[in-house]
Design a protein around this nucleic acid. Structure first.
Lengths: 254, 254
DNA sequence: AGAAGGACCAGTGGTCCGTA
DNA sequence: AGAAGGACCAGTGGTCCGTA
């Protein structure tokens, strides 16, 4: 139904950036500031030791159909050939199309619907072939999407905004209100994205804190992994709430 | 209920084998005979190129509590220290305890029940901690079992006999009859294991060929991955059957 | 010959951080 | 400063094959 209205949005243009040489070594820089996320987390430890250099010589893929300019031989400056990158998102109201070199949030959510369609195709293929059938949007699905020409779909982006899409699915009114409020205040996408966590945590609170169950109960959401951050926020909030009077629904003992 | 009757079986003893040095290099040997499995398969190709040598220096684990004899320094012969290995399985009737340095099939199936209990414990812990909760017996569960002292449980063994356990769960009468027949004929465990595929494929044939659905419909089976081989046999048999008159139940177009 | 399981490998989930 | 995404890494599913 609403898929048609959104199709036009996927025609939007791309940014360009010059191709650079891959092997460039970066001088090791220190650990930098950490505090965007106040609560939770704990796992970054082993990440601190990661400071590796050097590049893998890639290319495990079986049959790529991409074109490659063999042009960048020399050392120096401006690259030859162009690598494309999607326009950045801006906070838009429902139904609003982004102007200029920007993409709107309806377009963002449309990408999730597209991934779902790619998953369904991968599932059909797997069943025909008698192979294991994925139930979630996996690496295999992202690879399939890329081969099908949807190069603007990639894993880091889709994972980054999953919880925003979740709010859109689970409580469209709240999602829409949030978009309008953040647009009005002139907030950037990052701030809007952050704000999407809270209503989801509240929703989990009302439903026994089981965020997995909430995702799985919704047909368009069950195919997405629950984001680590959202899971952690629910857990932290649940711990804060334990024993307090605000607990009014099902809550198993910790 | 029947778990108690089987508990005694888990007290059975172990075989011993001398510990050998790890780093020993084996002379590369050719590809060897391939024909045990008649049907299906296709994937061994990339495996042929694997002929690697050298050893990883292991030890990613966080906190092991095992004892290590620091005794094997030299080059030569008989090892110091003993490494234990489970007694091999023999085909036993239901209720029969294996004699001598052997284990029976009730004991084998009991191991699957134990894995299920370990999974349930891992799930409880994950929920307490607000972490991702496994729905299947994963590496994490095998690691947990090992730390809990169940060193006789390991992944290759459990995966090897999953379909035998599946038959036991799904059609105990057929499973029991098969055990009695193979014991009487003096067949070895490998032959019995092979024979367990067929009744499962027949069962799948009667239920629209969806072996995943069959596993998922059974509470003790849904936690196990469908074995690749079983999936392939179902697919091959389905392909053979297409268009023939023996198709009597639901079957989506291929 | 038959069998148990250590140890390996390709490809996964997850997301950092070099890039613009 | 804000953001998109290539590319990396730890740990997974899967099972081979050196071992006895």
């Amino acid at each position: 139904a609403d898929a048609n209205a959104l199709d036009a949005l996927s025609q939007e243009g791309l940014s360009e950036e010059p191709v650079q040489q891959q092997e460039k070594e970066a001088a090791g820089s220190g650990g930098g500031g950490g505090g965007l996320w106040e609560a939770v987390v704990e796992r970054k430890k082993s990440r601190q030791q990661r400071r590796r250099k050097g590049a893998r010589s890639g290319g495990k893929e079986e049959e790529e159909e991409e074109e490659e300019d063999e042009e960048n031989g020399g050392g120096g400056g401006g690259g030859v050939g162009e690598r494309q990158r999607e326009h950045p998102f801006i906070v838009t109201e429902p139904g609003e199309v982004a102007r200029g070199k920007k993409n709107g949030l309806d377009y963002l959510f449309h990408l999730y619907e597209q991934c779902r369609e790619f998953l369904i195709q991968v599932q059909s293929l797997a069943k025909e072939r008698g192979e294991k059938c994925p139930t979630k949007v996996t690496n295999q699905v992202f690879r399939y999407a890329k081969k099908a020409g949807a190069s603007y779909i990639n894993k880091p982006k889709m994972r980054h905004y999953v919880h925003c899409y979740a709010l859109h699915c689970l409580d469209e009114d709240t999602s829409n209100a949030l978009r309008r409020a953040f647009k009005e205040r002139g907030e950037n996408v990052g701030a809007w994205r952050q704000a999407c966590y809270k209503p989801l945590v509240s929703m989990a609170a009302r439903q026994g804190w089981d965020i997995d169950a909430i995702f799985n109960a919704h047909p368009r959401l069950t195919i997405w992994y629950v984001p680590t951050k959202l899971r952690q926020l629910c857990h932290a909030e649940r711990s804060n709430t334990i024993g307090s009077a605000s607990v009014t629904t099902v809550q198993p003992p910790i």
